[in-house]
Computed example of a mutant assay.
Amino acid sequence: MAEHKRLKVYFDGGCRPNPGPIEVAAVMRGMAQVRTDLGNGTNGDAEWLALIHALEVAQASGAAAFDLLGDSRSVIAQANGRAKAASPSDRVHLERFRKLAGANPPTRVRWVKREQNLAGIFLNARHPR
């Protein structure tokens, strides 16, 4: 039987200014799904909400196995249990991520360079300089 390739879902989030309105993106199969209705917060909140958004997008796709890829070392280390939640809001986001992952968790949550993060590239394109 052929081995199935894991789905890759890229995520990124930010706010302009920081703190300010949050926007997040998840890119899966070349298509970006953006949310701008998440209220205000910090860039850290935005990165967490982007990871959660990517998890929801991946789960909704029905993929049996998926990786979540982002460029926030802090959020990825916390999500993988390699670092403690850095703040009370990080603890809330981490708990929500773990609860949502439940029975259908990602195979991996891993770091990629900023220039390889398709979600970050997409968000940057929304804000011409």
Rank of each mutant, 00 (worst) to 15 (best):
F11T: 00
A77V: 05
E47G: 01
R108L: 14
P21F: 07
A101N: 02
R108A: 13
F11G: 01
S61Q: 13
N104I: 10
P88G: 07
K8S: 12
A58G: 09
K113N: 05
N18W: 13
H93N: 15
I121S: 05
V34G: 08
A101K: 02
D67M: 03
G81A: 10
A79M: 12
V75G: 02
R6Y: 03
H93G: 03
V57S: 07
L94T: 04
A63R: 08
D67N: 12
R129N: 10
R129I: 09
T42F: 08
R110F: 04
N117Y: 03
A86E: 04
R6K: 14
R114N: 01
D37V: 09
L51M: 15
I22P: 01
L38V: 11
C15K: 02
A58C: 14
Q33I: 10
S61N: 15
R73M: 11
D45T: 14
R35V: 08
A79C: 11
N18P: 10
R114F: 01
E23Y: 09
P88H: 05
G20K: 06
L123H: 00
K5E: 12
A25R: 00
D12M: 02
T107V: 15
E115M: 08
R73D: 15
A65D: 15
G30N: 12
R16E: 13
L38A: 08
A86I: 04
M31D: 09
T36F: 06
P19C: 03
F122M: 10
W48P: 00
Y10T: 02
F11M: 01
R29W: 03
A60D: 14
T36H: 10
R114T: 07
R29V: 05
R114H: 09
L38W: 06
A63P: 10
Y10E: 03
D45M: 12
A86R: 11
V24R: 02
R98V: 05
